[in-house]
Amino acid sequence: MKSYPLILDNFSVTLFDRTLFNIDSFIPEPGTSTAITGMTGTGKSVLLSALAGLLPAYPFKLTGSMKLNGFYAYQDGVKTNYKIWNQIRQKGIVFIPAESAQAMNPSLSLEQNLKLLAPDSRDLIEQRLNEYFGINFKKFTKYYPDEVSGGELQRITLMILLSRQGGLLYLDEPTVNLDRNLRKRFIQFLNEEVLTQKDKTILMASHDIDFVRALSMDTIIALEDGQFKYLDALPESSGYEKPKPNEITGPGLELQKVSQHYKIRGVFGEHDFYAFRNLSIKFSESIIYGISGPSGCGKTSMIRSILRLVDGTSGNIVLDKQNLVELKRKENGNDPAAFKPFRKKMSVVQQDSRFAFFPDLSIRDSFTQIFPQQG
Score class of each variant (00 low, 15 high):
235 P>D: 04
237 S>Y: 03
225 D>H: 14
164 R>L: 01
195 L>W: 00
189 F>G: 10
209 I>Y: 07
207 H>T: 03
200 K>L: 02
195 L>M: 08
244 K>Q: 15
200 K>Q: 14
209 I>Q: 11
243 P>T: 05
175 T>E: 04
218 D>I: 05
245 P>G: 02
229 K>Q: 14
135 I>G: 06
130 N>I: 07
135 I>Y: 01
205 A>I: 14
229 K>L: 10
229 K>Y: 05
198 K>E: 07
188 Q>S: 15
233 A>K: 14
209 I>P: 10
197 Q>D: 09
203 L>Q: 06
208 D>G: 10
179 D>L: 01
190 L>N: 12
191 N>I: 14
190 L>T: 11
191 N>W: 11
244 K>A: 14
207 H>Y: 03
154 Q>R: 05
232 D>L: 12
169 L>G: 01
165 Q>N: 12
192 E>H: 11
192 E>Y: 01
236 E>A: 11
251 P>Q: 14
134 G>Y: 09
188 Q>G: 13
185 R>A: 12
173 E>P: 08
222 A>W: 06
163 S>N: 05
129 L>G: 07
215 L>Y: 15
133 F>G: 09
134 G>V: 00
214 A>H: 10
125 I>L: 10
199 D>L: 04
138 K>G: 04
231 L>I: 02
171 L>H: 00
142 K>A: 15
251 P>I: 13
173 E>N: 02
144 Y>N: 09
136 N>Q: 14
192 E>C: 00
205 A>M: 08
193 E>Y: 04
125 I>Y: 08
224 E>I: 03
153 L>C: 05
164 R>V: 00
129 L>C: 06
156 I>F: 04
157 T>V: 02
231 L>R: 09
210 D>Q: 13
124 L>S: 13
125 I>A: 11
212 V>L: 09
245 P>K: 04
153 L>M: 05
163 S>K: 01
166 G>Y: 02
189 F>E: 07
182 L>A: 07
227 Q>R: 15
168 L>R: 08
224 E>S: 13
244 K>L: 15
152 E>S: 09
223 L>C: 04
148 V>W: 02
212 V>W: 10
187 I>P: 08
159 M>I: 00
205 A>H: 09
127 Q>F: 11
181 N>S: 01
228 F>M: 06
217 M>C: 06
214 A>S: 15
227 Q>D: 14
233 A>N: 13
202 I>C: 10
237 S>H: 04
173 E>K: 05
130 N>L: 14
167 G>M: 08
138 K>T: 13
205 A>L: 03
207 H>F: 02
246 N>K: 14
146 D>W: 01
149 S>P: 09
167 G>R: 09
227 Q>F: 04
181 N>Y: 02
141 T>N: 14
136 N>K: 13
235 P>Y: 04
141 T>E: 15
129 L>V: 02
156 I>L: 02
168 L>D: 04
176 V>L: 12
228 F>L: 04
156 I>Y: 02
243 P>M: 05
190 L>E: 10
182 L>I: 06
125 I>D: 13
249 T>N: 10
127 Q>L: 08
234 L>I: 00
136 N>L: 12
190 L>Q: 09
184 K>P: 02
155 R>P: 01
187 I>D: 00
142 K>I: 08
222 A>T: 00
171 L>S: 09
236 E>I: 06
203 L>K: 10
211 F>K: 11
147 E>W: 00
155 R>H: 03
151 G>T: 00
191 N>D: 11
169 L>D: 00
